[in-house]
């Protein structure tokens, strides 16, 4: 019962000022972990946003996090994707690599293997766009490190359940 579990939680909220501060404040105020957090409007007509939070904690803490999120007044729904069956989780990254000659060619070759797209290029640099699981992104970062990695920007995870079920 004391083992740490990693959970991906989707939260549907009213898109109103301060909602993100409310959610983040809840996590910091109660000492919960945030591995990543993403937010964007998903329903313009009803002004709803979806927050995806990746967090870790004991089972008891995870249950608390969900109950506390549910308690926020502008929260419509809380779904623990990790508990509710199979789901797809993706993250996007932009990664800048600097180099000339062989290392540059090697970076491009590896990018191809990872199906990363080149979204910007100069004679001495590339910006790659890569989408996938956090592990895949981490693996790509590790490969780029000796090849002139200079900057990374990651979105954090977004996730959705597989099959016909919806939030």
């Amino acid at each position: 019962m004391n083992g740490l579990e990693r959970h991906t939680i989707a939260v549907l909220v009213d898109n109103e000022p301060g909602i993100l501060a409310r959610v983040v404040g809840l996590f910091s105020g109660r000492g919960y972990n945030i591995e990543s957090l993403t937010v964007a409007e998903v329903d313009r007509r009803n002004s709803l946003s979806r927050i995806t939070i990746v967090t870790s904690g004991t089972r008891m803490i995870i249950e608390q996090i969900k109950a506390q999120l549910q308690r926020l007044v502008p929260v419509h729904k809380v779904l623990d994707l990790t508990d509710e069956g199979p789901f797809v989780e993706r993250e996007m990254m932009l990664i800048k690599v600097e180099g000339k000659g062989d290392v540059r060619i090697e970076a491009l070759r590896l990018a191809d293997i990872f199906r990363a797209r080149v979204v910007d290029s100069t004679i001495e640099s590339f910006v790659f766009e890569l989408t996938g699981s956090a592990e895949k992104l981490n693996a790509f970062i590790a490969l780029m490190e000796p090849l002139g990695l200079v900057e990374i920007s990651r979105t954090g995870a977004v996730a959705i359940s597989r099959g016909t079920t919806s939030l």
């Binding site: 000022p17 301060g18 501060a21 409310r22 404040g25 105020g29 926020l72 007044v73 502008p74």
Partner: peptide, 14 residues
């Protein structure tokens, strides 16, 4: 005020 009172209210409005 809404920032300061966010953690000490059930909800707040501006």
């Amino acid at each position: 005020t809404t920032g300061i009172t966010r953690p000490c209210t059930k909800h707040n409005y501006l």
